[in-house]
Computed example of a mutant assay.
Amino acid sequence: MRIDAPGSGANPTTDRLVLSVPQPSDLAELHQLYADPQVWRADPISRQSSQEQTATMVDRWLAGWQRDGLSMWVARSTEPATEGQLVGIGGCFVRFGVAWNLGFRLHPTFWGQGYAQEIIRAAVAAARDVRPDLPLTAYLLEGNTRSQRTTERAGLRQVWRGPDAGNPDPHAIRLLYADRDLSPALVKTLTDN
């Protein structure tokens, strides 16, 4: 699979999805996804309350596409019954210049059907093509068992567990997963912010 910069027309596909660089026309649907309380049940402080928050997030994704050649995709169904519907988002972005961060968020309608694995496979392949020198990581809040299982199925393993820096909940625990061993210095860089 070849992933090109935004505007190049590259829209990779999986068995049931077309993946595309976010466009302004996606903003309203993306905000609905990021404002949905069911989607954020495991991480309620990350739920977005305004479309401006979503637009800022999308701008960061687009900057990642320009800077790194890969970031987050919008995932839409190619299945006949749901063709064109927003399944969710997913991909990899460079975190702190030292690691890929794998991310995915699906609309609850599509949970439990293997869509996250399709997005993850495409993201992992693209990250390894673009910058194979960077480790692949994922951040999860402890208790988000659905994402934890999905991340483990993708071949990542837990390499760190500790306080969630910046979380107003003092009891929140962050888990760091990676596809390889990480040095203590790299773990510190990735978890102190």
Rank of each mutant, 00 (worst) to 15 (best):
M1V: 10
I3D: 05
P6C: 05
G7A: 10
G7N: 07
G9E: 03
A10S: 15
A10W: 06
P12G: 13
T14S: 15
L17C: 06
V18G: 06
V21P: 03
Q23P: 09
P24V: 00
S25E: 14
D26L: 02
L27M: 02
E29R: 13
Y34T: 08
A35I: 00
V39L: 00
R41I: 03
A42D: 12
D43A: 10
I45H: 12
S46I: 10
S46T: 14
Q48M: 15
Q51W: 03
T56W: 11
R60C: 13
R60Q: 15
A63V: 11
W65E: 06
R67L: 05
R67W: 04
D68Q: 07
L70E: 03
L70M: 11
M72F: 11
W73N: 06
V74P: 05
A75G: 12
E79H: 06
P80H: 10
P80I: 07
A81K: 09
T82R: 06
E83V: 07
G84F: 01
L86I: 01
V87R: 03
I89S: 15
I89L: 15
G90F: 11
V94D: 09
R95E: 14
F96V: 10
G97F: 01
G97V: 01
W100Y: 02
F104P: 06
R105G: 01
P108C: 01
T109K: 12
F110G: 08
F110R: 02
Q113P: 04
E118N: 12
I119R: 02
I120W: 10
A122G: 07
A125R: 10
A125Q: 12
A126H: 04
A127K: 00
D129V: 12
P132A: 14
D133I: 01
L134N: 04
T137A: 01
T137H: 02
T137M: 05
Y139I: 04
L140Q: 10
E142W: 00
E142T: 01
N144T: 07
R146V: 03
T150N: 10
T151E: 07
R153C: 05
A154S: 14
L156Q: 01
L156W: 04
R157G: 12
R157H: 14
V159D: 08
W160T: 00
P163R: 11
G166R: 04
N167R: 03
P168F: 02
D169V: 01
P170H: 03
H171T: 14
A172D: 11
A172W: 08
I173P: 10
S183D: 09
S183H: 05
S183F: 06
S183Q: 07
P184L: 09
P184A: 09
P184N: 08
A185K: 09
A185H: 13
N193V: 14
N193Q: 13
N193A: 14
